[in-house]
Simulated assay, not measured.
Amino acid sequence: MNYEQLSLIQLDALKEIGNIGAGNAATSMSKLIHKKVDMEVPSIDIVAFDEVMEMVGGADKLIVGILFQILGEAPGMVYLLFSIEEAETLIKEMTNNDEISLSIDGEQSELAISALQEAGNILTGSYLSALSDFTNINMQPSIPHLSVDMAGAILTVGLLQVSEVYDFAIIINTKMNDAGEKQKGINGQLLLLPSPESFNKIFQALGIQGYE
């Protein structure tokens, strides 16, 4: 299965799923932090693996990655990716504490990690739920595994697992806004990597011709 761009119609179908997931996630996040949250999906891209690292700032960039296994009828993996700065902004919003940071005296803050994992549960769960409803394929996220490391170290394992069968990934770019201050939105990227046997199942369920 070789890398190739999907048509505009196919990308629109994926973006619609992303928008539904974003709406669900915004509702859940608003309840969690007691503040109105707007979420949008600026773009959905199908990119070759060698472009994935560049989209997150390069293999050597320090990032936060939250990994989920996709459980159910279409297994695979999902990465939720944030820059360190975006992750810390999100932590402060969720804890309502401007003094909190991802690490304290070189040690990771348990409260910060817990907040990010909860955000990951909400965002990933909302997108997978939307995809599941749209395709009638049961998909659920596992418990989250969070890493703070260079992008290359975080992503290589997942990309290697599927690279022998296909060489592209679905990236859903997301933006979380305080409803009153949209210029201060928090950007993240959700990287969807269905297992090889799941890829055609998902796209055929969306009415998209499978790959040979």
Score class of each variant (00 low, 15 high):
residue 203 F to M: 14
residue 143 I to F: 10
residue 162 V to I: 13
residue 85 E to Q: 11
residue 135 T to W: 11
residue 103 S to Q: 05
residue 35 K to F: 08
residue 28 S to D: 14
residue 59 A to F: 00
residue 178 D to F: 04
residue 119 A to V: 12
residue 174 T to C: 09
residue 168 F to S: 13
residue 8 L to G: 11
residue 104 I to H: 06
residue 34 H to W: 07
residue 72 G to H: 05
residue 3 Y to W: 09
residue 140 Q to L: 14
residue 71 L to T: 07
residue 207 G to K: 01
residue 159 L to E: 05
residue 30 S to C: 10
residue 74 A to E: 05
residue 118 E to S: 00
residue 88 E to V: 14
residue 149 D to F: 06
residue 168 F to H: 07
residue 149 D to S: 14
residue 33 I to N: 01
residue 135 T to A: 10
residue 31 K to R: 11
residue 67 L to M: 12
residue 69 Q to D: 13
residue 111 L to C: 01
residue 140 Q to I: 15
residue 193 L to S: 09
residue 186 I to L: 09
residue 6 L to C: 01
residue 161 Q to H: 11
residue 147 S to P: 05
residue 47 V to F: 00
residue 161 Q to E: 15
residue 184 K to R: 12
residue 190 L to F: 08
residue 153 A to R: 04
residue 103 S to F: 00
residue 158 G to C: 03
residue 114 S to I: 06
residue 24 N to M: 11
residue 161 Q to Y: 06
residue 41 V to A: 07
residue 149 D to E: 15
residue 35 K to G: 05
residue 210 G to L: 07
residue 123 L to E: 10
residue 45 D to K: 05
residue 201 K to I: 13
residue 120 G to E: 04
residue 139 M to S: 06
residue 146 L to G: 06
residue 196 P to D: 06
residue 124 T to C: 03
residue 75 P to I: 07
residue 32 L to N: 05
residue 116 L to I: 03
residue 19 N to G: 04
residue 171 I to V: 15
residue 112 A to Q: 00
residue 63 I to P: 07
residue 17 I to Q: 13
residue 112 A to E: 04
residue 21 G to R: 12
residue 132 S to W: 05
residue 212 E to G: 04
residue 61 K to E: 15
residue 96 N to H: 13
residue 99 E to H: 11
residue 149 D to T: 12
residue 108 Q to N: 08
residue 173 N to H: 14
residue 167 D to T: 10
residue 25 A to V: 03
residue 187 N to C: 12
residue 141 P to M: 13
residue 34 H to A: 10
residue 123 L to A: 11
residue 98 D to Q: 14
residue 167 D to A: 07
residue 170 I to H: 13
residue 130 A to M: 07
residue 201 K to W: 06
residue 167 D to I: 03
residue 10 Q to C: 01
residue 151 A to H: 03
residue 94 M to S: 01
residue 99 E to N: 11
residue 73 E to C: 03
residue 143 I to Y: 02
residue 113 I to E: 08
residue 59 A to Q: 05
residue 187 N to M: 11
residue 136 N to H: 10
residue 23 G to E: 00
residue 195 S to K: 10
residue 187 N to E: 15
residue 42 P to D: 06
residue 180 G to Q: 15
residue 67 L to A: 08
residue 137 I to C: 08
residue 66 I to L: 12
residue 16 E to V: 03
residue 165 V to R: 08
residue 55 M to W: 02
residue 113 I to N: 02
residue 25 A to I: 04
residue 188 G to S: 15
residue 10 Q to V: 04
residue 59 A to P: 01
residue 99 E to S: 13
residue 33 I to A: 02
residue 25 A to K: 09
residue 51 E to P: 01
residue 180 G to M: 13
residue 60 D to Y: 12
residue 198 S to R: 07
residue 176 M to N: 00
residue 121 N to M: 09
residue 3 Y to H: 11
residue 35 K to L: 12
residue 80 L to P: 03
residue 39 M to Y: 12
residue 103 S to N: 02
residue 1 M to P: 00
residue 49 F to C: 00
residue 87 A to N: 04
residue 168 F to E: 04
residue 59 A to G: 00
residue 142 S to K: 09
residue 53 M to S: 13
residue 88 E to A: 09
residue 8 L to R: 13
residue 11 L to M: 12
residue 176 M to L: 15
residue 25 A to H: 09
residue 190 L to Y: 08
